[in-house]
Design a protein around this nucleic acid. Structure first.
Length: 459
RNA sequence: UCCCCGGUAGCUCAGCUGGUAGAGCAGGUGACUGUUAAUCACCCUGUCGGCGGUUCGAAUCCGUCCCGGGGAGCCA
């Protein structure tokens, strides 16, 4: 029966007859036979195949195999007499499924820059590093669901096309298609828009998640999110995935606890279940990565208020490009200094000035701050942003007016406060930033299979 | 979008103050070998990012556009 390399290497059975399909990583010839390194993507490690010259197609085909060729190997698993691997597959037949002309196949048996691999994003998952990223990403994705499902959260598929802008979250991509009704002539008030009004791709599922939280209690969304910002950085994408829990009867402290528990759960999961892939990142991408992740799991996250952050920055004696004073938005240099130099661990900053935060965040009794939180992580910066939501309709209305937001456009959102309102909280976790943090990959474009950035969406 | 740096062989890069191009790896051929970034010998490879300009002459200088990297803004 067809087995994956990961299964074979995890529990090798000497003498077992196997059929393995995979891609040739490299071929080395010895006297009278050849070694094939066979990888199938199920794990980082390859299976060594012994191809004797007695194979019917040895001279015509096996000797011509090169990096990237796909083959189906049938043979017997045996102990390996040489060092470097404990078992190997002695081939009885090798069927070549697809050639990969070495003159033109872009992937070589050598290191490639990530910038180059990005230009061939249809081939890059065949490399060790990008394959490992894909496996870790998949495990993290599954972990997000298991974390919430184990705790009784209901997953809500919030809409991708939306007519509500989540203020403060960035520019929306426009979804523009002529109305099917236009031209029919009957509907006099036809705007010509497919949805009867301007629509866009969601910049956050938060507002709709709030709807379900105020019906089902604890919910989460995990889906694609779009920002039409002209951002050219190593930590921004035009299309990315975001995890957004929303919890009824939950204040900011509860919000913080869930966020910290989620991050630790996911790190612990990957440390135990993706050890080989993490070891690769630790060796070649970010030295000390595993120790850093282990430390994060073991330590309490630091927690300070914005006001304390401002004090700490001012007392640090450090000179910043942007001077620190109460009321400013913390700049990257400030966030990095706080989490990387002062606290040296993940840092939760709460209670930001109301003036620099969106209208839906809950106004505190001081009237100056809102119940907001950002989780900052060394190397990445902001990985989570969240808040307790404003549940008092008259306060919410006032804040909307201050922010210049038309209450009529958010009438449904205000209804949630008019009828059976409850305190509730939630946050957004940038999934790619999580994958970046876990893998140590420097550029966010390497942790999503098909990155979308301004001017770049090749397939 | 702004600031700085870069774009030379399939890949990674060298090429000083202008005289029209090179190394390693990859690839090809052969030898050798229970090999594992295999080794050794020989061979091949270029619109020097695009366009325009200066000059007798541009990979090299100037302008502009495109793309990439680092930083910043926006944020997740």
């Amino acid at each position: 029966m067809n087995k994956r390399v990961a299964e074979v290497l995890a529990a090798p059975q000497i003498g077992e007859k196997l059929e393995i399909g995979g891609w040739v990583r490299t071929r080395r010839d010895a006297g009278g036979f050849s070694f094939l390194e066979l990888g199938d993507g199920s794990c980082l490690a390859n299976l060594q195949v012994i191809a004797e010259q007695t194979l019917a197609n040895y001279r015509d085909e096996v000797k011509k195999l090169s990096t990237g060729c796909s083959v189906l190997v049938r043979g017997i698993l045996q102990e390996s007499p040489a060092r470097g691997q404990s078992v190997e597959l002695r081939a009885e037949t090798i069927e070549v499924l697809g050639w990969a002309d070495p003159e033109s196949y872009p992937l070589q048996k050598k290191h490639h820059s990530f910038e180059f691999l990005r230009e061939i994003c249809h081939l890059r998952p065949r490399t060790n590093a990008l394959g490992a990223v894909a496996r870790v990403r998949s495990r993290l994705s599954y972990g997000v669901h298991s974390f919430f499902q184990e705790r009784g959260f209901i997953q809500v598929h919030t809409p991708i096309i939306t007519t509500s802008d989540c203020e403060g979250a960035g520019e929306m991509f426009q979804v523009s298609t002529p109305s099917p009704a236009s031209g029919a002539g009957e509907s006099g008030g036809d705007s010509g828009e497919f949805f009867g009004r301007p629509a866009g791709l969601t910049v956050s599922g938060q507002l709709q998640a709030e709807v379900y939280a105020q019906a089902l209690g604890n919910v989460y969304t995990f889906g694609p999110t779009f920002r039409a910002e002209n951002s050219n950085t190593s930590r921004h994408l035009a299309e990315f995935w975001m995890v957004e829990p929303e919890m009824a009867f939950c204040d900011l402290a509860g919000n913080r606890q869930v966020a910290e528990a989620l991050l630790k759960y996911l790190l612990r999961l990957v440390l135990t279940e993706c050890a080989a892939d993490l070891a690769l990142f630790d060796r070649f991408i970010a030295k000390g990565l595993v120790a850093k992740l282990e430390a994060v799991v073991e330590q309490e996250f630091a927690h300070i208020t914005y006001t304390e952050a401002v004090q700490q920055l001012r007392q640090s004696g450090q000179s910043f490009v942007y001077p620190v004073q109460w009321g400013i938005d913390l700049q990257s240099e400030h966030e990095r200094y706080l989490t990387e130099t002062i606290h040296r661990r993940p840092l939760i900053v709460t209670d930001y000035p109301a003036a620099i935060k969106p209208f839906y965040m809950r106004l505190s009794d001081d009237g100056l701050t809102v119940a907001a939180m950002d989780i900052l992580v060394p190397g990445i910066g902001e990985i989570i942003g969240g808040s307790q939501r404003e549940e008092r309709s008259e306060v919410l209305l006032a804040r909307m007016e201050q922010a210049g937001v038309d209450p009529l456009a958010y009438d449904w959102y205000l209804d949630l406060r008019r009828y059976g309102t409850v305190p509730h909280s939630g946050f957004g976790l940038g999934f790619e930033r999580l994958v970046q943090f876990v893998t140590g990959m420097a550029n966010i474009r390497e942790v999503i299979p098909f990155p979308r950035t301004p001017g770049f969406a090749p397939c």
